[in-house]
Amino acid sequence: MRYVMNRIGFFILSLWAAITINFILPRMMPGSPADAMFAKFQGQLTTTALEAMKKSYGIGDTSLWQQYVDYLHGLVTFNWGLSFMQYPTPVSDMIQASVPWTIGLVGISTLISVFVGTALGVYISWKRKGFLDNTLPVVSMAFQALPYFWVALLCVFIFGFKLDWFPMAHGYDPAITPGFTSEYILSILNHAFLPAITLILGGLSGWIVGMRNNMIYTLGEDYVTFAEAKGVKTSRLMFTYAARNAILPQLTSFAIAIGNVVSGAILTEQVFSYPGIGNQLTSAVQSQDFPMIQSSFLLIAVAVLVANLIVDLLYSRLDPRIRTGGSN
């Protein structure tokens, strides 16, 4: 229990740090978003308009402390400012519209990749030196070694353009009205298939090879031989004795991968013109949309922190050596 409280305490502390740094950093940059906006309109704005704008961004004449309090208040009330590029849409609305797409596509692909890769890793280490063990790591590594954007473009070109099996862009067919209908859901799945496949193929080899190597190392441990000698059945030997220990390092990689879900698929979303947060972030950077950039970064930081917290807690469930913070 003490371990859990520790992790949650650490989570809150780092969350605060991330939020505060996100507040300080833009204010340390030369110029201000309002100046940038002012410059963008090339003298068509008056100075009073500039002042008004500064005020609305929360960077007026008030003290830094007052700004910080306003910023925190805005955060909690989902008042994250207005986007520049789609002025005056609130940033929170834009994020709400794009994040579910990203989590749906990248999150689920990552989960599939982790589960399938880890399961395959266990399987081929079991059937050591079998056909799959000899081919799978090499083939999957070849996929990972190819430049991702190239594979993705190739997929769009072959399966989207040439063969016309899958749509080449968007999250769903714009002709269909969104709603909880089978037609809409099928359309989403159809659109997500290609990007998901490229993501899964690109990530699979790390999980396969990682798990396979952990398994082979663990299978050589004395406790596995000892358990084998004492008569434990092969399935229990494989899962409870070997895989249970071999999966621990995988969890760490899993935390990093989950943290990257929000930010990691910028390329995918660009290539497949997918309406996710990665796509939004790239256009926000291109158009100097500070509120959007700031909110996205904060979101990414929070995602990484939350993922780490979850994995930390999971770790303590799986590895008794972690949780002995005086519990016994």
Binding site: Y223, A229, G231, K233, T240, R244, N245, D319, P320
Partner: peptide, 22 residues
Amino acid sequence: RKFRWSQMSMVFQSAMNALNPV
């Protein structure tokens, strides 16, 4: 599998590593 341990058993060289840590 049945014969081992019921008729013959073994104490391993490294006691430290002969037990499953989890």
